[in-house]
Design a protein around this nucleic acid. Structure first.
Lengths: 215, 215, 215, 215
DNA sequence: ACCTAACCGAGACGGTACGTCTTGTCTTGAT
DNA sequence: ATCAAGACAAGACGTACCGTCTCGGTTAGGT
């Protein structure tokens, strides 16, 4: 949680792609005013409501200054959204890996189906056409989520419940990629039942479990 | 594959959300000219190059007419892209389900990593902020793909190689959702190795295969 | 009042610039339906509300047919307005020429200040950018007015009250030109008092009346 | 003659209806570039050639900026035309009021019959359907003309040649209203002879000069 | 009673201009 | 030196209206 954008501290240790604001005293004030205004705008109208002019007007930070702190409005929105959502990550602990992971898939599915999930989808989509914003989204939002789930996975590996040969990144993508796909394309709903079907298939695999008896 | 937009044929059987242009004789000419021009634009500059004005200028179809045929430029691009890609679906046949599915994941991964994959990502992203275009993308692109993979899955089910309790939709999302997630967010590369890791984990499941010994 | 556009009668005796509709039986119906619809539109929103599409929709007359009967929408509006206003010309008879003319100036001033006067101004203005419509406005509206005032003038000439050397056309323009100028440019109001000031100055001339005797 | 649009000078003393652009340093450059381009367009194709897009392209001033400086393209054209014509007002001095006024009517009549007169008519007409532009036309064109003629009239009043009871505004309208009427409606030509007929009738009045004694 | 034109409705279409919106750069002046 | 305020160019957007056109259906008048 060390503030990765603290400018005067170590401006060199910059996560690649993330701007470090100019020199540095009123910067903090500017930074936070902009993020707060952007949060409000996100609440009111989602990403479409986040306009550089709107942020400038709300926050009292001028457009020129905004462009010194972020490469684009999407980056501001990504950072604002990421910070706001940072506290909402609550890890389940059901006692078993399959229980934890299934519950987590349910939770994320519910999150995607909520208003905040809409904003998430908008940000994800915006990053496609705005590559400069992608690092912000990864650092300020995705990273925290992946770390959290990494904890679950590590626990499961330690317990010997999951296949240790599988990379945690792969596991995450298999569990949540389907949800993301549905969120974006909207070809299927994001209900708890669907979430369970997905986690079930992901945990046990698509192949037939012939093992037990004769086929 | 009867032209689904032929108006006088069956104007009633409209896939929901897909516009059927008003009456309809010169319509066909207009429709195809617009799609052809849009394809060219997609080739040259991806979705950002697809502008209503550009389509109009290239195709000789006026803007007003374009808006009578499609709800937005994204819809035109989705239909154009979908039609163009319709023929490229080639199903592997390796003899086993796990071989077929793994190969298909590799193929799709390669597709996503290609220039056309970039356009795919742009369209997917655009549909988030342009709901009117989503049906076009689903009908003209996604549908064909899902049907094709459905064939693979059916074959696998018939062979008894995969778990028949798993819905084909769920299977598809688990196999390709991770690829889509990576394509959009760019947090991980789309290499053949990664594709294999994903298909492997999806086929065999995340849980530890205790099967060998006593359970 | 003889229908000057009756086609089968004498299609040759066409006032220059006025279209004579094709051959001729349903023509009358079309003609009148269009004019009636146009009148309604003029009432509701003035000339800006008169759109070719709007006339077509209201009247049930197709656009193509409208263009066979009139060169432009302004022409339709001019004819419609002219016919509608034809009956409103009421000539004053006060006993003296100066009384008649002054009263007429007051009446016309009041007309210009009324809603119908707004439409008159719009039509006049439209004729500048739509030369094809000008003949319609002259024939169906201005002509009747000028004829009516010509009667007044003739009477005044016969009575020996006005200068017989002055052309009636000149007299008309001097009396009403100022009103038209004000109507269009809006630099001065169109009140009864102003009307009297204008007719007074026009009747007695701008020069000082030294005639009587010593001053 | 003091630049009436200099913003920082006295932004309050605004002729009603005339926009005063927001703040204002580069404003002057923009303002003049737009007016110059508009003048060129007026020369080449009259008011119909004056298009917001055309002005923007020619002048390098963006459309959005144009709309911040003027309420409509007609307003730009009116200001451009007015400024351009400002220097052309040359007052006659024949020694007598009737000579001066008659000559002025001839001059204005000739002006109306010239290409510039066509533009004048177009602007006058456009102001009917574009009320926002009318103040511009009055302030930048009509006002100068009326002031100039006011000088003539004052001189005539001082000389005791004209009726001092007649308001200068009324006199102006009676002398030039007929010309404007003819210009717009085109019912009569604008020849020098007609101009003399008009000024003669206006100066001496319509009533018969009878009266008293010998002529 | 037909038959053959002309006429008509309906409305799609290309074209042109509109007025608005957002982005990212640049300038000015105050702190 | 930094910043707010905001003007500005660029260019896409979606709409409106125009005038032309193509399509069938209808009506009439000549046979």
């Amino acid at each position: 949680m060390s503030a990765p954008m603290s400018p005067e501290a170590e401006p060199a240790r910059v996560p690649e792609g993330i701007l470090v604001h100019p020199t540095g005293a009123r910067s903090r004030r500017v930074h936070e005013a902009a993020l707060r205004a952007t949060c409000d705008l996100l609440d009111e109208g989602g990403l479409p409501a986040v306009t550089v002019d709107a942020i400038a007007e709300r926050s009292g930070v001028s457009k020129a200054t905004l462009y010194k702190h972020w490469p684009s409005k999407t980056a501001v929105a990504a950072e604002a959204f990421g910070r706001r959502m940072a506290e909402t990550v609550a890890l389940p602990d059901t006692g078993t890996a399959r229980g934890d992971l299934a519950e987590q898939v349910r939770l994320v599915s519910a999150f995607y189906a909520s208003p905040a999930g809409t904003v998430f989808a908008q940000l994800l989509a915006a990053c496609v056409s705005d590559p400069g914003a992608a690092p912000y989204f990864r650092v300020y939002f995705l990273h925290g989520r992946r770390v959290a789930i990494g904890v679950l996975w590590e626990r499961a590996v330690r317990r010997g419940e999951v296949d240790p040969a599988i990379d945690v990144e792969t596991a995450i993508d298999i569990l949540f990629g389907p949800l993301v796909f549905r969120l974006i394309s909207g070809h299927r709903p994001l209900t708890p039942e669907e979430a369970d079907a997905i986690s079930g298939a992901a945990l046990y695999g698509l192949l037939r479990h012939t093992s037990t008896g004769a086929d």
